[in-house]
Write a protein that binds this DNA or RNA. Structure first.
Lengths: 175, 175
DNA sequence: TATTGTTATACTCTATAACTATA
DNA sequence: TATAGTTATAGAGTATAACAATA
């Protein structure tokens, strides 16, 4: 029973986002026995970018699970390798970390023998960051895994698509 | 005080990082003088998407601060409005929430008088979700604010750029 | 006084297990 | 047994304040 004849409008999945944005109410009843109307969301860049980011990071984390490295750790190792001897504050500046949070991450990376902190000679407040030998060896492996991960996504849009995507994202957030 | 100015400095220098991201054709040799080499990161789709997502959400949160609505809350209100009477499990399915986490969010939205949960008649385990009148009124305002937020980004890439971007992101994460 | 790194803390978001009340 | 919702909790990630050592 309760066959709710009210719900037979059967709206297809494409939602008119412009209409929703303009405040035009939808008459949609409750017939979502399969596909749920996301309303304006699929037309919002923020929603699409967030969904993509979640999907990509999920793959990244699974790809790196065998070496127990997370996206933030990979970015820190990469920046240290590309700027040997740089200070913690500079890593924070480059990656948008808070100093207090980088401390905790470096504690872990140092404990694992991947990074070393060296007291600055000229400015004894600062610590110069370096990869250890083990850190460099691991980073080679990480780069191989990341390349696989990257290819899994890029083959869906091609190298041209990747160039377009990076260009659009850069324009999107350019000051 | 020092912490506040630190925040400003970080934001300003983040634009340097964004400029690095924008440098597509550049071989991007190690430009010294305080700029930090991000290595392979700017060529990784996940890094670019993550950076864009952070920037867009920051603007979204600031835009919605006056009504105290966060991105997840907006998406839930939008889905309820577009599928009146749907169940909590369906919201979770549509948006990728865990059931336990949606409960907490709905407690808050219900406390604020924006959403109501109605015991299902046919299945008394489930709760049919509806916006209250106040919720509908607020959502109209939210849609106006979101449209402003969206325009701030879209004017940088144009409507064509937006179509390309949404298309590329959809292809990128298509099953 | 200002900056670098640090400790402590808190808040959001996300994830899992176990419970309840229904089915 | 299975499902919808709930409670409790734990883990990341991110944020700020305060401190010591140093500039």
């Amino acid at each position: 029973m309760a066959e709710e004849s009210m719900g037979l409008i059967r709206r297809r999945r494409q939602s008119n986002a412009a209409a929703n944005l303009a405040g035009k109410g939808a008459e949609a009843a409750a017939d979502h026995d399969g596909s749920i109307d996301l309303g304006v969301l699929p037309q919002l860049v923020g929603y699409a970018v967030r969904r993509a980011q979640l999907r990509i990071f999920q793959d990244f984390i699974e790809t790196m699970a065998e070496v127990d490295i997370r996206p933030g750790q990979f970015s820190v190792l990469t920046v240290i390798a590309a700027n040997r001897g740089l200070k913690q504050a500079e890593v924070c500046e480059a990656l948008g970390f808070k100093r207090a949070n980088l401390v905790v991450m470096l504690d872990e990376l140092e404990r694992r023998g991947l990074v070393k902190r060296v007291r600055g000679a000229s400015d004894r407040r600062s610590r110069a960051l370096h990869l250890t030998k083990a850190g460099e060896v691991l980073l080679l492996r990480l780069n191989g895994l990341v390349a696989q991960h990257e290819r899994r996504f890029i083959r869906r849009i091609g190298e041209d698509g990747k160039r377009q995507l990076l260009g659009l994202l850069a324009k999107l957030i350019a000051v």
